[in-house]
Design a protein around this nucleic acid. Structure first.
Lengths: 165, 165
DNA sequence: CGCATTCTTTTGACTGAATCAAAAGAAGGG
DNA sequence: CCCTTCTTTTGATTCAGTCAAAAGAATGCG
């Protein structure tokens, strides 16, 4: 579903992304970035699985470290939908939100429909100073709608990336 | 900050709330409802602590069971801000959202500023059917703003309920 | 190019939050 | 008042993630 070229390009700029953030370029970091580019909204475990192929022997802890470093340095964004382990994506710095499937947990991006929308600036804030508004939509993904219509088609695994248009 | 009468009243309707939902009226359930009425946005552990006083000997598991039952039957709402254990509130059925303090984790309610706002209906939904939009605001609560100005005032414990106006 | 310093990774123990399951105990209908 | 069914207790177990020490790599510098 994704051209070969895109994946290779990602491989190349992993290094410059890391250098740009003042982080050392290491194999686990490069591999994590490549994995996230190929599979947006992957969990730490998804990344670990993906990397086990490209870079066998990488520890689970390294994956947690790398994902944490990427998030801390603005190279990745962490999202934590209720009931799901944390997920990560390289798309950062733009104002976008997420739809989560309540039945399989699949996540897709949604561009903010109305920019800096009025409803995202609440009226009385109980004394809080607001930094950002996070919107999570809950619904049913295309695959699960399908399954609901035609029950009993068996399990429906890795629904993590498919949803991204 | 809350009148005695309110707490007693809550005690009374715990039973009818439960019966209305077809649930048996038990001491742990009543106690959990009373605790949630007194402390909105409490975590399971907060509730457990609170109940340890009113109803010693109640198990932690019972608290999880009750909170789960309340949520499943629409008597309570579960919210799960990133980085925090699940929190529960009795305020259900209205369209309101939450502000979470990024430094102490305090949670406060926010009424949806624009009702069923336009920005809560995204344009292209990647094939999802949307059920609901959940908005979480992130910011700094009044207490933590204070602490930031006057550093070194020591720790700042139970900030769970204080924020509710 | 090679070395020293500093940052990363590995390994393995450990925590917090929550769930599962079996047995004992209480609520409510008759 | 008893019986059935639902709840609670107890204790083990899982999942996701963190902590810490020791071993190993990446960069800067000579």
């Amino acid at each position: 579903m994704r051209t070969h070229a895109v994946v290779e390009a990602t491989q190349v700029d992993a290094a410059s992304l890391l250098r740009g953030a003042g982080l050392r370029v290491t194999k686990p970091r490069t591999a994590v970035i490549v994995a996230l580019a190929a599979t947006p909204h992957a969990s730490a475990d998804d990344v670990f699985q993906a990397i086990a192929i490209a870079l066998p022997g990488t520890s689970r802890q390294a994956v947690y470290n790398v994902l944490g470093d990427l998030a801390d340095n603005g190279l990745a964004q962490r999202i934590e939908p209720a009931g799901s382990p944390a997920r990560y994506e390289l798309r950062v710095g733009d104002n976008h939100h997420h739809i989560v499937c309540t039945s399989c947990g699949a996540v897709a991006d949604v561009d903010c429909a109305v920019g800096h929308a009025p409803c995202l600036t609440p009226h009385h804030t109980a004394g809080f100073v607001i930094d950002e508004a996070e919107v999570t939509y809950w619904g049913t993904c295309a695959d699960c709608q399908q399954l609901a219509r035609v029950p009993d088609s068996s399990s429906h695994a890795s629904a993590i990336q498919g949803e991204t248009p």
